[in-house]
Design a protein around this nucleic acid. Sequence first.
DNA 1: CCTAATCCCTGTAAGC
DNA 2: TGCTTACAGGGATTAG
Length: 273
Amino acid sequence: MPELPEVEIVTRVIRPGLRGRVIQGAVFHVARQVVSGRRTQVTRSLIGQKVADVRRRGKNILVNLDDGVLVFHLGMTGTMYIRARQKDRFSHERVHIALDNGNELVLRDPRTFGKIMYLANGQRSESLDRLGWEPLSSHVTVNELRQKLANRSMGIKAVLLDQALWAGIGNIYASEILWEARVNPLKPAKRLTVDECERIIEAVPRILSRALKNGGSSIRNFMSPDGQSGAYQKQFRVYDRDDRPCVRCGTRIIRVVQAQRSTYYCPKCQKMR
DNA sequence: CCTAATCCCTGTAAGC
DNA sequence: TGCTTACAGGGATTAG
């Protein structure tokens, strides 16, 4: 679920409820999800701090505090919401952060692949430092892209999943972007032509901003802690559409496994050339 | 530096 | 219907 558009939506939804609030308590139910040290230590650091702002970097949600930043990564199944503090919990709630206005911030994450990290001011994180371009705000030139792809022999789709290139692209949108750009996902990244690179540079923000716009229309359902069902209207061009006709040319979409992940593409629109 | 494989965990859908 | 299996949108780690 959570690639850049979904993470951006979560960020926007929780931001107004967090800004200016003071943290009164924090409970991390699954120890291994906290990657920056001991849970008790993180909780101690958080209590009393005021939230300055909430931002997104790649697929990470950054809660900026007076003395540091609390980072959430939603993994495969995570989502976050704010609600009035309550005793009874929905299932799969892994983090509760009590706020000074009676509300609480919740991380719900059935599969527990999400991660939480606290960085004191000045502290660096390798995983954050490694992140690449922001798809919606960086202006990338063909030369910059070609340079980054120069010694990558993997198929371009697998390379798009590398967060050090563009940060925030995941498995779904990687396929969608390459369909939009008419580039074969299996083509070795270093063999891409200038034209193909240009088309990818255009497709990345176009696909992600469109997804964001559409995802935004189903925020309420998307955010609901209990009901993901049927909320997220799919309008993918290729993802999960194997054996169905390409909306551009009618050819059957095919699915292949690439780097242990599903890849979908139109064999006619996205020729290797 | 790069690549491929494995693992973390649980819910859901498909298959028998 | 009920049990079993395959698979899922992320990414860190390990071995080569």
